[in-house]
């Protein structure tokens, strides 16, 4: 299992990093990416509320950010 995890990690890392040279934009091409709604953490309040609900009702948490603890949650 551990070997499988490491394999997935390395593969994802390599595919992300090896493409960096050809990926990306020039600073003047950031018009769309600069919009508020394109930020990864846009709607942070919604994401926080959702995390609380799903943390309480499901066995997995985190991923986007820390898995944390923080409530008794019945």
């Amino acid at each position: 299992m551990k070997r499988k995890l490491v394999g997935i990690l390395v593969l994802m890392g390599v595919t992300q990093l090896s493409g960096c040279a050809s990926l990306g934009v020039q600073p003047w091409e950031r018009d769309l990416l600069a919009k508020d709604e394109m930020a990864l953490g846009a709607e942070g309040v919604d994401l926080g509320l959702d995390d609380h609900i799903y943390f309480s009702k499901e066995a997995t948490s985190g991923g986007r950010s820390f898995a944390g603890g923080g409530c008794g949650c019945n």
Partner: peptide, 12 residues
Amino acid sequence: QVINRRMLMQFN
């Protein structure tokens, strides 16, 4: 990683 003018990707 910024992929292009329209696309952004994150892996954690």
